[in-house]
């Protein structure tokens, strides 16, 4: 409805949305990410898996330059979004983050009303010309966040009063309200119960139609359920990247195999 599938996408393999080339990340003296090359496809769910501290969240945060807020963090290498280097000096991270939205580990709604939570992004980016426009965007986003039916009667109640699962879907709705092209999710279900997790996973699957979704997860079952592509990180290295089915059934690298079978991690 919002993005009619282009002919090209159906004929050829899906287009490359993000291409990372020899990315290195340092925290002070710590070499957190080593030589990561990865190509993330458009309209695909890509999962980053790996043991704690392996750098998957760090790498995810490189994709919308959220690491800029950490003083001691340095990024080297190249990350291309639609062929443009996002670490180019001319790139304003604010503009980048409007294209590359992010959902965080802990649901973090603003302490404002549900309506204002969603409307904030469109307002600062000037996406709505009138109040009516904004109402439309809010409703559309809440519907895409699969939370409209639950909150439509209390749009002006505080967003912090929702349950954890609802808050996380609100945050997803907030992220899609600015019409991003890529959606980054940093362990979006780790603070949720199994039912809320199920709802969010269902939502991620729907979002695949419109966006390129990159999700970091601790749960291999979740990666297997929602993603088409999986990348396995270990000690800052990208060990293996490929079709999810192939990674889980027939991994090439012995480290991937031992992680998936539960021997390391």
């Amino acid at each position: 409805m919002y993005d009619s599938p282009s002919l090209e996408n159906e004929v050829t393999d899906k287009a490359i949305k993000i291409a990372a080339d020899k990315v290195q990340v340092f925290y002070g003296d710590t070499h957190a990410i080593k030589d990561v090359d990865v190509q993330i496809q458009d309209k695909t769910v890509t999962a980053f898996i790996g043991p704690s501290g392996c750098g998957k969240s760090t790498f995810l945060r490189c994709l919308n330059r959220m690491n800029d807020t950490i003083d001691i963090c340095r990024v080297q290498g190249q990350i291309l979004l639609d062929g443009e280097d996002i670490y180019d000096k001319r790139v304003d991270p604010v503009q980048l983050r409007a294209k590359v939205g992010m959902v965080f580990q802990k649901p973090n709604p603003f302490p404002k009303s549900i309506y204002d939570n969603i409307a904030y992004g469109p307002r600062i980016h000037g996406l709505a010309k009138s109040k009516a426009d904004l109402d439309v965007i809010v409703e559309k986003s809440l519907r895409r966040g699969a939370i409209w039916d639950e909150v439509k009667d209390r749009l002006h109640a505080p967003g912090t009063g929702l349950s954890g699962g609802q808050q996380q879907r609100l945050c997803i709705a907030r992220a899609v309200a600015t019409e991003p092209e890529v959606l980054l999710m940093d362990e979006p279900c780790s603070a949720l119960d199994p039912i809320a997790t199920g709802q969010v996973e269902e939502l991620i699957d729907e979002l695949r139609d419109s966006y390129s979704v990159v999700i970091v997860t601790h749960s291999m079952q979740q990666a297997a359920r929602v993603s088409q592509k999986t990348a396995f990180f270990h000690l800052g290295n990208l060990v293996e990247y490929g079709e999810t089915s192939q990674i889980f059934t027939n991994p090439v690298d012995p480290r991937t195999e031992s992680y998936i079978t539960g021997r390391i991690g």
Binding site: M66, F104, Y120, T178
Partner: peptide, 23 residues
């Protein structure tokens, strides 16, 4: 003020100043 609020604001594309003054 929890850092998650700053992250949330930056995550939807607010500038540093907007995140500080709005949130």
């Amino acid at each position: 003020v929890p850092p998650s609020i700053r992250d949330a604001a930056l995550g939807v594309g607010a500038s540093k100043m907007q995140s500080v003054f709005h949130h």
